[in-house]
Computed example of a mutant assay.
Amino acid sequence: MATSEEVVLNDPHHPKENSFQAFHHVIHDIKHNILHNRREWDKHEPRMWSRASGLTDHQLIDFTIEKDLVLVRSAPVSYGTIILGKIRIPAINDEEGEGFVHVRIHDPPNRGTEDVTFHSIWHDAGNPNADGQPTTWRAIQTKDRELTFFNE
């Protein structure tokens, strides 16, 4: 498994056709995971998905890769390519602005997009207090939140 010290991501850029194809291959996994993830976090820490709290499941996952994948980064690793994507959630546009999820997928070498797999969604559970407990809970990111390596 790659670590942030080992992975050298390219600069953030608008997606090209190969990124659209890779993310399109796993869109159902991404949407399923968003819904499952929200339900699980809501059981013990509803602040994680609080920006989506007023949305139905349908509203939360009503996005397309073609219109809403707005930024990507990638890096080669010994077992293929890690691809990060910033996907807009059109139903979220609140006092913080538009809402986005950061998604990680994996493309193994030499087989095109047929074996691309979903890896994870980034959750910002950070800014620890004096007891080491997180004070930031965020699955929906802002437009200006940098797309950086994560290994969740």
Rank of each mutant, 00 (worst) to 15 (best):
V7F: 04
H36G: 12
S50C: 09
E114A: 09
L147Y: 02
Q59F: 01
D131I: 03
R38M: 05
A75G: 14
T135H: 03
W49S: 11
H14F: 08
Q21A: 14
F23Q: 10
D57R: 06
I61S: 09
I82E: 07
I87H: 07
H14I: 07
V101K: 03
I121H: 06
G85P: 05
H25T: 11
R51K: 13
T81Y: 05
P108A: 11
P108D: 13
A130K: 15
N93F: 05
G99Q: 04
F63T: 10
M48K: 13
R145C: 04
V26S: 06
D144A: 09
P90N: 08
V116P: 06
K86L: 01
Y79G: 03
A2Q: 04
W41A: 14
R138F: 00
T117P: 02
P12R: 12
L9F: 12
H25Y: 09
H58N: 09
R145F: 11
I27T: 14
I87F: 07
L9M: 04
L69F: 05
R39K: 15
K86I: 00
L60F: 03
G54N: 15
E40F: 03
P90F: 02
H13L: 13
N10D: 14
H14G: 00
W122I: 00
Q59R: 08
P15F: 08
G80Y: 01
T117I: 11
E114S: 13
T142P: 01
R88C: 10
D115I: 10
I121Q: 07
S50H: 06
A130Y: 13
H123G: 00
T136M: 07
H44D: 13
E96A: 09
S50P: 00
I82L: 14
W49G: 11
L69K: 12
H119R: 13
R38K: 15
P46F: 10
R111M: 10
E152Y: 06
F118M: 03
K16H: 06
I27N: 02
D11V: 08
V77L: 13
D62K: 06
H106T: 07
T142M: 02
H36Y: 09
P12F: 05
G80K: 04
E45R: 14
H36E: 09
R145D: 15
D42I: 05
I121W: 04
H58E: 15
T113F: 02
N37M: 12
I65V: 15
D68E: 08
D57W: 02
V101F: 09
R39T: 12
I140T: 10
T81M: 08
E45P: 01
A139P: 02
R104F: 05
V103E: 02
V101W: 03
W122C: 12
P108V: 06
H14A: 11
T136F: 05
F149G: 00
S53I: 07
T117H: 06
S53T: 05
D124I: 12
A2V: 13
I30V: 15
E6P: 00
